[in-house]
Design a protein around this nucleic acid. Structure first.
Lengths: 149, 149
DNA sequence: TCTTGACGTCAAGTCCACTTGATGTAGTCA
DNA sequence: TGACTACATCAAGTGGACTTGACGTCAAGA
């Protein structure tokens, strides 16, 4: 991994990509979606602000739990467009993120426990089974995640 | 919702689709993947065994937590190919499922708590942040889920 | 009997999240 | 200076999970 001096606040695409564990093409893609931004050098090369790493980390963890890039963008749009995001900005996002994760954790926990009840026990009845009910809380309005290998 | 008499063990596509909350085309798709199966009437219409609803419920809940259809198929392939799956068969799958969910819950919980630590607190440092580390436990070998609106 | 709707097949389309390829330029190092 | 690599743009391709469309058939009710 290339050493990035402490003082350098603007990073090259390759550096950011390596540090964040994504491909350079992914940076382009995210930029096209407005998730991250860059400035250009005189030679038209991109330069990313150091805190882009933080944004990328945020995106990464959001995706890991199945949040779409659209939703991520909504969250990031609450950061100030101009100027560096402050601690307060990140704290606000962090709070929302925390709540979202908590909700998701509770859902999974319920799923696990009810699953044990209705299938694990061997009752083999779907009549009162929450999984056979398409209209449960989190089910409505979503197509669900696509992959989590 | 159409009434399906208690005794009927073979259901029509429309009935299954409505009960399971999926489209008929989805049933075709799942069948093409080998996730569910059907027999045909003399008029070439599909008929699904009642317990297909259980399989579909299983698929649904698996997808909800971001498990791919490939992985679902792996699990379902452990059910007996011929004959009705027994309580024991479902119980085994249920156990695995339970473990998988537990793992996922623990991951999310860790994510949430560490997230609070490293961003919520405002330290704004990514140096020791688990999200900036591409090589953490669940990160390796996966591209992550795609959507969870 | 006739109509209507559910169903059959198969190809193609969609959406998200990227990746790959083609082609040209910029910067670095021997 | 020349080679080599990183980077730029843009279009097109990929993979998962479906959906839509076109077109023909089967079955149940008026």
């Amino acid at each position: 991994m290339p050493q990035i001096p402490e003082g350098r606040n603007w990073l090259k695409p390759g550096e950011v990509a390596e540090r964040a564990g994504v491909a350079v093409s992914t940076l382009h893609y995210y930029e096209s979606l407005g998730l991250i931004s860059s400035r250009r050098t005189s030679g038209n090369r991109r330069e990313y602000r150091r805190d882009t790493l933080r944004v990328l980390a945020f995106i990464r963890s959001a995706q890991r739990v199945g949040v779409s890039l659209d939703r991520v963008k909504e969250a990031l749009d609450q950061l100030p467009r101009k100027g560096l995001p402050t601690k307060k900005d990140w704290a606000r996002i962090s709070r929302q993120w925390h709540d979202e994760l908590t909700e998701r954790i509770e859902y999974l926990t319920g799923l696990r426990d009810r699953f044990s009840d209705c299938i694990g026990c061997g009752c083999l009845s779907l009549k009162s089974c929450p999984y056979s009910n398409p209209d449960d809380a989190l089910g409505a309005g979503g197509q669900g995640p696509r992959r989590f290998p």
